[in-house]
Simulated assay, not measured.
Amino acid sequence: MKKYKLGYTSGVFDLFHIGHLNILKKAKEHCDHLIVAVSTDELVQSYKNKTPVIPHVERMEIVKSITFVDEVVAQTNRDKVAAMEKHQFDVMFVGSDWKGNALFNETERIFNENGVDVVYFPYTSNTSSTLLTQVLTKIAQPN
């Protein structure tokens, strides 16, 4: 029996890479059922001021095809407390790059009051969608 019954994580999952795979695999090792919320294009545009390279529907299909993922939902906002209330998960998994972030400090406090844990996994520092985008942009630009 795993420590948690229902786990949750979220992300953009654009230009899917090993860091994405690692967090999903590690999350599933800790819970019986893993829900993954994939950010919509509109949500990403609203806080990152850029449109993902891969459209939302395709990113959802990619994540859905990962064996560690039990359920995929659209993430239309960044309100983790609302997600907790909707999905009733008992743990949220997130990359360590968010630890200490003001958004997550408040979220952790509310989760704690509701018996929900936050588990941070090490951020894959040598791979990111931002880094991949920069490399691809550089390759695509003529000299």
Score class of each variant (00 low, 15 high):
residue 3 K to R: 15
residue 4 Y to E: 03
residue 6 L to D: 02
residue 6 L to E: 05
residue 7 G to F: 01
residue 9 T to R: 00
residue 9 T to D: 01
residue 10 S to A: 15
residue 11 G to P: 01
residue 12 V to H: 01
residue 13 F to G: 00
residue 19 G to F: 00
residue 20 H to V: 03
residue 20 H to C: 10
residue 21 L to H: 07
residue 21 L to Y: 12
residue 21 L to Q: 06
residue 22 N to R: 14
residue 24 L to W: 04
residue 26 K to T: 09
residue 29 E to K: 10
residue 32 D to K: 13
residue 39 S to C: 13
residue 40 T to R: 00
residue 48 K to S: 07
residue 49 N to L: 10
residue 53 V to C: 00
residue 57 V to S: 05
residue 58 E to D: 07
residue 62 I to K: 00
residue 63 V to W: 00
residue 64 K to T: 11
residue 68 F to P: 01
residue 72 V to G: 01
residue 73 V to T: 02
residue 76 T to H: 04
residue 83 A to M: 12
residue 83 A to R: 06
residue 85 E to R: 14
residue 85 E to C: 08
residue 85 E to L: 14
residue 88 Q to C: 13
residue 91 V to E: 06
residue 91 V to A: 14
residue 91 V to N: 04
residue 94 V to A: 10
residue 97 D to K: 01
residue 102 A to M: 10
residue 104 F to V: 09
residue 106 E to Q: 14
residue 108 E to H: 09
residue 109 R to C: 08
residue 109 R to Y: 11
residue 110 I to S: 07
residue 110 I to E: 13
residue 111 F to Y: 14
residue 112 N to A: 15
residue 113 E to Y: 07
residue 113 E to I: 07
residue 119 V to P: 03
residue 122 P to K: 06
residue 124 T to N: 10
residue 125 S to K: 14
residue 125 S to P: 05
residue 127 T to K: 13
residue 129 S to K: 02
residue 129 S to C: 08
residue 129 S to E: 07
residue 130 T to W: 07
residue 133 T to G: 04
residue 134 Q to E: 15
residue 134 Q to D: 15
residue 134 Q to M: 11
residue 137 T to Y: 05
residue 138 K to V: 02
residue 140 A to F: 07
residue 141 Q to W: 04
residue 142 P to D: 14
